[in-house]
Amino acid sequence: MSAIVATGALFTWALHVHAENVPVPTRIVDLFEQDGGRHPGFRRNHAKGVCVSGHFDSDGQGAALSRASVFERGSVPVIGRFSAPGGNPQQEDADTTVRSFALLFRLRGGEEWRVAMNSAPVFMVATPQAVLEQLDASRPDPRTGRADPERLAAFQQRHPETRALLDWENAHPPSSGFDNAAYYSIDTFRFTDAAGSTHPVRWRVEPQRPYQPVSDAPADDPDFLEHRLAHDVEQGPVRWHLVLTEARPGDPLDDATRAWPDDGRHREIDAGTLVLDRVQSQIDGPCRDVNFDPLVLPAGIAASNDPLLVARSTVYAESFRRRVGEEAQAQQGHTPRGLTAWLAAVKAWIDPSRSSGTSGTRRTD
């Protein structure tokens, strides 16, 4: 409980110090609810997801950049969650273009390292204010139920930095599964080694399985990503390599819309292997109550000045506060309107014959 209180104090401090740069988190979360609908008990973004667990085997090489204990040779347990952006837990997998992957590393001494990554190496916008504008431009038109193309075009014209992500998506079709995509930190972090030297770093996890574009999404299975992952893990663990990339002079350190040049001149370190061997439903799996706040960092890793980091932390906290409050009301018998029916619908999605009690899925019959 003390850790939760301390984290809450950190959020309050961050909001106070950065109030001139970071919009009120409730405004952003409110817009997520407007765009994706309000679904009590679920995350306001990345609402649809699946829990995973396993371990990280460090080879000790990452210690060249950071003294964080996660990079000492050995193994630590991890809890993770795969998802896609969006506030609707009923969205079909075929409609998603970006995969997301969050992890919690449980380290010695009670430390944790929480990361939230996307399958694209850049973000749509560079500032919290632009996130607000993007969400506002993406609000569904009441007449069509979809975003107004003219509003989106106007937003993109005001923010030419969005072109980097759109161009990347056009050149990189979504992966056919969660387990054959690479995932990127997007933001820069400051790693400090044992000698006290600081290294600006971004990282990615590279899949052991080769990337394949999604070209055979089954029309009768809106949850094929989770089903394929559960099937693959039943055959054996799935793996990624954690690759650390150190910045070179001139690389942007506080702009998540700008990728570092892929010129072969950066120092890269393969820090170890991530191994996932269990898939669990997000309804009652180990990731359900985890806030994958990217500012929960171990000694040896610190945030950069990227303004999105504080914004992400505070927005995640607001989303977490809302859904935990809804769950608490439900447990006390004061279920918010619609939550009882929603949870009943969630249970109806679970197909025991396919999930074997591990993977929350919709019925496809």
Rank of each mutant, 00 (worst) to 15 (best):
D148R: 14
C51W: 03
H39Q: 00
E161N: 03
S215Q: 12
A63C: 12
A3E: 00
R114I: 09
E327A: 09
R204P: 05
G333Y: 04
A194M: 14
G60Y: 08
A219L: 09
W349D: 02
I186N: 14
L65C: 09
E326I: 05
M124A: 06
P200G: 09
H231I: 15
S66W: 13
L15V: 05
D57E: 13
A271H: 14
Q157T: 12
F155Y: 07
D167N: 11
N291D: 10
V76C: 05
Q157M: 14
P128E: 03
W240H: 02
V125Y: 03
H18D: 04
A171G: 14
V22P: 00
Q331N: 11
V122R: 07
V296S: 01
R114S: 02
P207R: 02
H55G: 07
T7K: 04
S69Y: 04
G272E: 03
P307C: 01
A330N: 05
R27S: 12
R265A: 11
Y211I: 03
D167G: 08
T358R: 15
I350H: 07
R106A: 12
L132H: 13
R114M: 04
E226N: 00
R139Y: 10
S75N: 12
F292C: 01
A147E: 04
T314I: 01
V324C: 10
N88W: 01
W349K: 08
A126L: 13
T340K: 11
T358L: 14
G272T: 11
H55F: 09
P173L: 02
A345G: 11
P252L: 07
D95N: 04
N305F: 04
A247T: 08
F11N: 01
E111L: 11
S175V: 05
A3F: 04
A330R: 09
Q134F: 08
F191H: 13
A194C: 13
P77Q: 08
L339H: 04
G325K: 10
V279P: 00
P252V: 06
A47P: 01
E318R: 15
P142T: 13
S53V: 06
C287K: 00
Y211H: 02
L343H: 05
P200W: 14
Q34I: 15
I79H: 02
A164W: 13
Q134T: 08
H172C: 03
V205W: 10
R278S: 03
P140S: 09
H159Y: 05
G74Y: 10
T97M: 00
L308M: 09
A247S: 06
E161R: 05
N170A: 08
A64D: 09
T162K: 03
E33C: 08
T273P: 15
R44W: 06
S138A: 15
E206H: 10
Y211T: 03
A84I: 15
T340I: 14
T162L: 02
D255S: 00
I283W: 04
M1G: 06
V98Y: 00
Y211W: 02
M124Q: 07
A64T: 12
R146D: 08
G272I: 08
P140D: 03
V279D: 01
F292S: 01
K347D: 00
H199C: 10
T273V: 15
E112Y: 09
A9Q: 04
F320Y: 07
D93M: 02
R278Q: 07
T273W: 15
Q235D: 12
F105H: 09
Q156S: 07
G250N: 12
P307F: 06
A195W: 12
R139H: 10
Y211D: 01
R363M: 06
I269K: 07
D251C: 11
